[in-house]
């Protein structure tokens, strides 16, 4: 039977992997303010991952650090969209906006979770993610409805990322058990709200919503793209090279 640890592992892995991806921008963003903004968002996400993985680890008998740094790709339960490479700045923002819209809706439902520990983490993270979504949607609109160049890049990013959207709203047996126990909402139940919000953002961005419903699945079950292994090789390097290192 699925329990809060399964949910916490999925949430923790998604926030950890996306947080690490976003942190790759540190020192490389187009302007200083955006560099700082990206680093701050990465920090929020990694901080949230620490809480989620801490909760999961209580059941799994491992610390948050052990879960983050000593598992191989097949043991990660993050959404595939989180491990997509950054691409250009517009691509990174589009990924963030698509994810933030889902993340905010998910956290708002988790605040009502039957599991008090889940509800507490969600309530804390929700305030931070509201900021993330305001920023990412604002920038998607400004770049989409910007110059010919920025518009073309944002449309290309949306088209490229679209196959990774459906997974956020596709449940499996674990999700069904979590929903049945009142621990988490059924992923499908978040879709209508996300669609309404995102249609508004895309309309104002002058971007065209792709028509395909094809969804690449597998992240939540541990079947990942080739990109996750490369990400982990960098993220886990220190603990792999110097097992047990602390400072």
């Amino acid at each position: 039977m699925a329990d809060a640890a399964d949910l916490a592992l999925r949430m923790g892995d998604s926030t950890l992997i996306l947080g690490h991806r976003v942190s790759e921008w540190c020192g490389h963003a187009p302007i200083l303010e955006e560099d700082i903004a990206l680093a701050n968002i990465a920090l929020d996400l990694i901080g949230q991952a620490q809480m989620w993985l801490g909760l999961a680890g209580e059941t799994l008998g491992r610390s948050a650090d052990q879960l983050a740094f000593l598992r191989d790709a097949g043991a990660f339960r993050n959404l595939l969209i989180c491990e997509r490479p950054n691409g250009d700045f517009g691509h990174t923002l589009m990924r963030q906006c698509l994810f933030d819209g889902w993340h905010l809706a998910m956290l708002r439902r988790l605040i009502g979770s039957s599991e008090p520990r889940v509800a507490e983490i969600a309530a804390k993270a929700e305030r931070e993610v509201a900021y993330h979504f305001e920023r990412s949607s604002d920038l998607v609109i400004r770049l989409g409805d910007g110059t010919g160049e920025s518009h073309a890049r944002m449309q290309a990013a949306l088209d490229a990322l679209w196959p990774w959207v459906g997974e956020m709203f596709t449940g499996d047996a674990t999700d069904a058990e979590l929903a049945g126990a009142g621990i988490a909402p059924a992923p499908e139940s978040l879709r209508a709200e996300w669609d309404a919000t995102m249609d508004e953002v895309l309309a104002e961005s002058t971007l065209i919503r792709p028509e395909s419903d094809f969804a690449q699945l597998g992240g939540k079950q541990g079947r990942h793209t080739e990109h996750l292994g490369h990400l982990l090789a960098e993220m886990q390097f220190l603990q792999r090279a110097y097992p047990g290192a602390t400072w």
Binding site: L104, R127, V129, F133, E134, S137, D138, I141, T197, E204
Partner: peptide
């Protein structure tokens, strides 16, 4: 405090 409601521009 942010509400998550997108505020254009």
């Amino acid at each position: 405090a942010p509400t998550g409601r997108r505020v254009a521009r």
